[in-house]
Design a protein around this nucleic acid. Sequence first.
DNA 1: TCGATCTACTAAACCGGTCTAGCTCTGGCA
DNA 2: TGCCAGAGCTAGACCGGTTTAGTAGATCGA
Lengths: 363, 363
Amino acid sequence: MGRPTIADIARQAGVSKGAVSFALNGRPGVSEATRDRILRVAEEMNWRPHSAARALGGARADAVGLVIARPARTIGVEPFFSQLLSGLQAVLSASSVALHLMVVEDTAAETEVYRRWASEHRVDGFIVVDLQVKDPRLPVLDGLGLPAVVLGGPGKGGNQLRIWADDREAMLSIVDYLAAIGHRRIAHLAGLPHFQHTQRRIRALRDAARRLGLEEAVSVPTDFSDAEGAAATRTLLSRRGRPTAIVYDSDVMAVAGLGVAGEMGVAVPGELSIVSFDDSVLARIVHPPLTALSRDTFALGEQVARSLLAELDDAGPGRDLQMPTPRLTVRESTSPPGGGPAGAGSPAGVVAARIVDSGSEPV
Amino acid sequence: MGRPTIADIARQAGVSKGAVSFALNGRPGVSEATRDRILRVAEEMNWRPHSAARALGGARADAVGLVIARPARTIGVEPFFSQLLSGLQAVLSASSVALHLMVVEDTAAETEVYRRWASEHRVDGFIVVDLQVKDPRLPVLDGLGLPAVVLGGPGKGGNQLRIWADDREAMLSIVDYLAAIGHRRIAHLAGLPHFQHTQRRIRALRDAARRLGLEEAVSVPTDFSDAEGAAATRTLLSRRGRPTAIVYDSDVMAVAGLGVAGEMGVAVPGELSIVSFDDSVLARIVHPPLTALSRDTFALGEQVARSLLAELDDAGPGRDLQMPTPRLTVRESTSPPGGGPAGAGSPAGVVAARIVDSGSEPV
DNA sequence: TCGATCTACTAAACCGGTCTAGCTCTGGCA
DNA sequence: TGCCAGAGCTAGACCGGTTTAGTAGATCGA
């Protein structure tokens, strides 16, 4: 015999299927004595519900979907995704909700998967990442009638719940800091230009540069890969009048840039300050350790999962949510331009940290 | 009206449910004309199958399960897992098979999830990672009757298909190389001691040390975290008669160790050679870039997915599979002990590479 | 003592597919 | 003309749960 069904339990316990269903789900309709007996029989027979049968009755799938449209090979490289996944899992698994994960080639394939999973009742909701400027996925999701949490925003378009960290504020805090310690030529190795957060950061840098009267502030779009990060860094450092500080949109690129600087004999932070927009082990364990924006991506994942679960339970729309603005963690990869020695233990990092921590005016 | 069912299509097309099912699944039983008509109607009504209903009939779930028993926070840190995931996805998504992912606290919880997913018909098979010495999960999986691919092996216990890279051979190649360029005191920062691959590596190091008559060869177990990697490195380097080379079981630890060396003023590779058992961007982009075992984890993921899919299709048991023995990629973090300068572009790396590439005797 | 009400339960419909048994019609052939 | 084979289709069982309508029996108040 295959695995037991409620019909088997009903026969064994001498009751009807309905009674078994009531008993197993803790609903009224059976006496305590009968309930106990049924539960005991179910336990003995090692019964488990057949999720498909339940789902057929209209119940929840107890799973949420995450579809990522990037080349599969690059996902493994991004600490951001793995940390996000970890955070999601921490909350989801506590509620016994599984994560349906799929990596596809492009946005078209992504929306197709949304349609399929929704109509197949595979998932109860979606998590959407890499928000684009005029995102074609949002209207599709609206049409599917399943709740979704979008990572990125705020903004119009789509009825999905949005969760985001303030990229603009974050970029401003970086530029303010760099300007405060004397930098006048700042470069920014940005991510893919059609992502909304890339746009926000680029704009923030431009605005800050104007306000602070910087000599130069250029954003260079890349594909987030270490290769392009390295190549763009090489180009920037080869120029006459090269920047004295570079802000990298991801830690992988920042570390790649650091390697290029070493290779070209450009001292960090003596001749070049490096700031990473992403703080992971990577930023901490290289030498010198990188000044980085400490965005707690794990916590972000947790929050996204929590919001989505709440959405599933209430059916009432939740509120958009802004994560705490990331704080700049000053380490040893930044110092005043042409300033302190490149070696470890330079006091520059300490001084800079004090400036930022106190929140006082620039020096 | 909700989403259309085959009954709706049948009504619309003026045929029976059965005819619609035949037509949609490309089975004989309907004429070409009728089939076309039905398909057109289905298309018009934008019909999609209800996966639960299909599954209820005994069909496949079109999903495989991966359960990882490690603290959620550490997953994000391991490039190994993200790369494995990427490889899995590359193959799975091509077959429209979804990945059910869950991160749990311990092995007990893990087997419980196996039981649940199997009896709930959520997945068609499993991928098992982190094979342990006497792995309690294998008998459970045997009992569930679902195919599984185990990463690690070879060995007895369990009827699952096994896929592994030869850890022993890999460790031998590292030690041979280090010994060939003159190292006599080698340390090994190992992973969790109850993992099978950790045991294999430790034993391989011991055997090689005896065969080569090394002065010292010690394995230190850790939890794979950068923190323990750094701490253990600090301890090793503080000792009198410290090792001249350290082999790290993961690239995160290796990079952390590199940081510690820099901080303690120990030149790499001048005074200390560093080898990582894992090669990822991490190993390439730090400075100096690390000599590392190039295990193609992405390809491993692809192979695992392929094998599992084959297992699902045939129902015939596949063959255990050994991945190509990883090759040692020599970069600039290794040189003869007390040898060349620590700076970039040291010829040591080049010379060493030649030694290994040619496969000739030690210098 | 009678109806009203409540409890504890059963029978059967239902979800949306798959699949089998069987029916009808057509054509071929003796 | 009668019989058979096969194509094309239908009706309905079936998967394993949930849920609703209905019923038997106990309890209660007047």
